[in-house]
Design a protein around this nucleic acid. Structure first.
Length: 257
DNA sequence: ATGGTCGCGCAGCGA
């Protein structure tokens, strides 16, 4: 099974590129983030024509997550399934695809360490961990995929010194990610690709992509049993090139059956 | 780290 995650930064603006990429890459399951669409505007027919069943959880102008699958798509759950008030933002979607419990996650950015949004981010990650405790089996096949807005280690940042005191690299965020690892999730890309300096996001500004000034913040977090089946992982930098790219590149992982 | 750039939607915010 070929699984991918991609923050497309508006599916409306990116649809043709996504279609072309699906045709080229032939993924079986795709998690999309930042669709920036209402559910009524989601182009389900376009993906259906390419062989994909879909689920979308959107709100309109901001956020929005989707799952595409050509290996089955059942038991869809939007957001957190717990007793708390529903998340006000459309950032999480679950479905079972090809025997894997898949989540498409768009973790809050955090903005700055002293910002309320940072508190929301940490709470959101804790709630994700609690959701896993409630509903999922760390011994099963689980893949939480998406834009985590966290660089797991300094090797995932082009210049760690530049980001001291900033979000995406702070100890509490990394601790929240480590809590997901404690539950049983593994950063699959990192297990297959040990070298530093491999990034999935580059700011549009200042020619950062061409200067290789990026971060690896898009992750496939797989349960150990699933991670053991991973045979190949790549960040598709080609998708960040050319006309009208997203500022994120897709992360692709292949799993043996 | 953000002057830089995008997307949304038509000013300025969010990333």
């Amino acid at each position: 099974m070929r699984l991918a995650t991609w923050n497309v930064n508006s599916l409306k603006a990116r649809l043709q590129r996504v279609e072309d990429w699906l045709t080229d890459v032939q993924p079986d399951v795709v998690c999309l983030q930042e669709t920036k669409l209402a559910d009524t505007a989601f182009p389900a027919m376009t993906f259906e024509a390419l062989g994909y069943a879909t689920a979308h959880h959107g709100e309109g102008r901001w956020n929005g997550v989707a799952i595409l699958s050509r290996v089955g798509l059942t038991d869809v759950q939007a957001g957190f399934d717990d007793d708390d008030a529903p998340d006000k933002e459309a950032r999480l979607l679950w479905a079972t695809c090809g025997g894997v419990r898949v989540a498409s996650a768009y973790v809050p950015n955090g903005r700055a360490l002293d910002n309320d949004h940072y508190t929301y981010k940490l709470g959101w990650l804790a709630r994700l961990r609690a959701h896993l405790d409630l509903h999922d089996d760390p011994g099963g096949a689980v893949a939480v995929c998406g834009d985590f807005n966290i660089a797991p280690a300094d090797a995932d940042v082009w210049d760690p010194a530049v980001f001291e005191g900033a979000t995406h690299v702070s100890a509490p965020e990394r601790a929240a990610l480590a809590e997901l690892e404690r539950w049983g999730l593994v950063d699959v890309f990192r297990t297959l690709q040990p070298e530093p300096g491999l990034f999935s996001w580059w700011d549009y500004r200042a020619g950062n992509f061409h200067k290789r000034h990026g971060m690896r913040i898009d992750l496939v977090m797989a349960s150990a049993a699933l991670a053991d089946r991973a045979t190949y992982a790549v960040i598709d930098r080609n998708a960040r090139k050319g006309q009208a790219p997203s500022d994120h590149a897709p992360v692709i992982v292949d799993f043996a059956d």
